[in-house]
C-alpha cells in the first residue's frame, strides 16, 4: 500500500515536472519572438502582445505536447483500463451464472430436507454472499418458492430443518407429510407443528419458524 502510494506520488511529481518543462519551453519561444519583434522596432508591450497572439493557445499546445510525450503511457493506461473492465465484466458474469445455476438447482430439484446446521454451512456459500434473504413477519404467509427454516427448543433435533414451499404451497415435513403452509401465517405454522409433534416427545416442545422469501 505504502509502495503504491509512493509510486503514485512519484508519478504525480514527474508529471508536474514534465508539464513545467514543456511550459518553460513554450514560454521561452514567446520570449524569443518578443526579442525578434523588439529588434525589428516594435515596442516591448506591443511585441509581447503580438508574440502571444502569434503563438496561439498556450494551454492547448502544452496539452498536445504532453499527449505526444506520454502517448505510450496513455496507450498502456488504456490497455490496463480495458483489461480491468473486462475482468470486472467476466467476474460479474461468473457470479451471475453461479447464482443462476444455484437457483435453477434449487427450483428443479425435489423438495429437499436438510438439517439446519447444513443450511448454516450452505449460507456461507459463494452465491449467498450476494443475496440477503428477506425474513417474513409473524402474520405473513409463505408462498411457493419460499423457504421455511424450522427450529425447536432442542427437544427434537431431527425436526430442525429447512424446507422449500412447493408449487402447490405445501411443505413436506417428517411424519406429518405435506402441510399446506401457504394457507397459514408463520404463527399458525408454529402452532400446527407444536400441536402435531407434541405427542411424540416426552418433554414440552416448542417450534419457531423463519420464512425466507424466495428469490423470484
Amino acid at each position: 500500500m505504502k509502495a503504491a502510494a509512493g509510486w503514485f506520488a512519484d508519478h504525480g511529481a514527474l508529471a508536474r515536472a514534465t508539464r513545467a518543462d514543456v511550459q518553460a519551453e513554450l514560454e521561452s519561444h514567446v520570449e524569443l519572438t518578443v526579442e525578434a519583434l523588439v529588434a525589428d522596432g516594435a515596442s516591448p508591450v506591443h511585441a509581447r502582445s503580438e508574440a502571444r497572439r502569434r503563438f496561439g493557445d498556450m494551454y492547448k499546445i502544452t496539452g498536445r505536447c504532453l499527449a505526444e510525450k506520454h502517448r505510450g503511457e496513455l496507450v498502456m493506461k488504456g490497455i490496463i483500463a480495458l483489461l480491468a473492465t473486462a475482468l470486472v465484466l467476466v467476474s460479474g458474469m461468473l457470479v451471475l451464472t453461479t447464482l443462476e445455476m444455484r437457483r435453477a438447482q434449487a427450483d428443479d430439484g425435489p423438495v429437499e430436507m436438510v438439517s439446519a446446521r447444513h443450511i448454516d454451512l450452505d449460507l456461507q456459500g459463494l452465491g449467498d454472499q450476494f443475496w440477503t434473504p428477506i425474513l417474513l413477519g409473524a402474520h405473513d404467509t409463505p408462498r411457493p418458492g419460499d423457504r421455511l427454516i424450522i427450529a425447536n427448543n432442542g427437544v427434537a433435533p431431527d425436526i430442525e430443518l429447512s424446507v422449500q414451499v412447493d408449487v402447490d404451497g405445501a411443505a413436506l415435513l417428517p411424519e406429518l407429510g405435506h402441510l399446506e403452509v401457504s394457507r397459514l401465517t408463520r404463527d399458525e405454522i408454529e402452532e400446527t407443528l407444536t400441536e402435531y409433534y407434541t405427542p411424540f416427545y416426552a418433554d414440552e416442545i416448542k417450534f419457531t419458524v423463519s420464512i425466507e422469501r424466495g428469490r423470484r
Binding site: V22, A24, E25, L26, S28, H29, E31, L32, E35, R54, F55, G56, D57, K60, I61, R64, C65, A67, E68, K69, R71, G72
Partner: peptide, 29 residues
C-alpha cells in the same frame, strides 16, 4: 507553433532527436 512543438516532442519520444536546455546568444534560456 501549435504543430511544431507536438511534432518535436513526438520525434523526441521516438528517440530521433534529443533535448537539452541551453542559453541563446542573447542570454535567454
Amino acid at each position: 507553433e501549435g504543430s511544431l512543438y507536438p511534432a518535436v516532442h513526438r520525434l523526441e519520444r521516438k528517440g530521433l532527436i534529443e533535448a537539452e536546455w541551453g542559453v541563446t546568444d542573447t542570454g535567454r534560456r
